[in-house]
Design a protein around this nucleic acid. Structure first.
Lengths: 209, 209
DNA sequence: AGCAAAATTAAACAAATGTTTGATTTAAAC
DNA sequence: GTTTAAATCAAACATTTGTTTAATTTTGCT
């Protein structure tokens, strides 16, 4: 779907506010004001608040589509190196779109909008299918263990990153990092996350002792 | 705070509905109907919807208080055995109070109610202080690694469980478990989670190869 | 039984909600 | 320059929201 300038303004405003207050906690008047457009434009362009949300997911959920295809076929990279790149891709994707990810986490919990949850589910399936290829390759080469439970492993990957995203204010305080500049903190935390998750994946996947 | 029968009915109804629809997505009329009480009783007993939520957290957040003290002093248990019990306690606590945990996850993400987020933060700090004791003991005995980043490890613990809680429908479908009875599924998933997380903790904490 | 406090109720309240309307302005096409 | 459609706007709309009111019922106590 092609978006014009006004539509983009509206979705940006909606994403920002809904990341803070949630769908029901954000009124269309708040969104219109934040976007600097007239209230009626939301219905005019999207039909309704609900459909505006759907448009937002259609527009943004591509964030979750990983750039994996070419990497998977790469003959130079070993399976573990591929998994490490995968981890970093997930960290980048989720951290670079924190606001949208918050909206998504909320929406995922609700039994709510079928169109949206189906959309998310489909993306997850596609990603898992690709990752499974890497794992199969690793098992065939004997560097990965047999009997790997990918869905649970993905829960640790996404769950750990999500948990950081939703509680980073806690993390800052508990580590006395309130005064660290925002971008420096982002770098710091991504590095930590990356090392931590790679250690975990290595322990779960690798055949070596 | 002591609760009478009506107050309990109200909080139970509120918890159930807010786990599904969130705070803003749940009206006091919905809550009153679900609880089978008159609409005005919510203001009458709690003062407001907001304060009702605070009462709910005051009442339920004890779920997150682990029964660790006595176990920590236990001379029979090694540090790794203690960590394993810790993992199982977290799994039990969060899984046994799924509805409340959903409400908490949502509320945690919002900048919203200071009283509630402070309460949560305080509980986390207390728990982490206790866990740190176990880790120090393990390090002193030489069975745990030095330089363990506890906050990140806790993110993996809580994040993995939370991710499962918020996406279990997806997990069911991807594993073809839609027809498994609910209680059997709960058992199945707790067992898997437990083994998975213990493997991770062992890899991160243990000094052995 | 009589009384005071607590509990319960239906109704009313003002404010906020998502959406629509109908008029007006802007832009594009001829 | 006129015409036609798209875009923009303030106002109005009907619901829904959380809360309060004022009357009534129930409860506990003497």
């Amino acid at each position: 779907m092609e978006l014009n300038e006004k539509q983009r303004l509206i979705l940006d405003a909606a994403e920002k506010l809904m990341a803070e207050k949630g769908f029901d906690g954000t009124s269309v008047r708040d969104i219109a004001e934040e976007a600097g457009v007239n209230l009626a434009m939301i219905s005019y362009y999207f039909g309704s608040k609900e459909k505006m949300m759907e448009a937002m997911f259609a527009q943004r959920s591509g964030y979750y589509k990983l750039q994996l295809e070419s990497m998977i076929r790469d003959k130079e990279l070993g399976p573990m190196a591929k998994m490490e790149r995968l981890i970093d891709q997930y960290i980048e994707k989720l951290m670079n779109h924190q606001a949208f990810h918050r909206v998504l986490v909320r929406e995922q919990m609700v039994s709510g909008n079928k169109m949206i949850t189906d959309h998310i589910q489909e993306l997850k399936k596609q990603n898992q299918a690709l990752i499974r290829e890497i794992i199969s390759e690793g098992q065939k080469k004997g560097v990965f263990k047999k009997n790997i439970d990918l869905p649970i492993l993905m829960m640790t990957l996404i769950g750990t990153i999500s948990q950081l995203l939703t509680t980073q204010h806690f993390y800052k305080e508990i580590n006395g990092l309130q005064d660290m500049p925002a971008d420096e903190f982002q770098k710091h935390i991504r590095k930590k996350l990356s090392l931590h998750l790679k250690k975990i994946f290595h322990a779960i996947l690798s055949n070596e002792a």
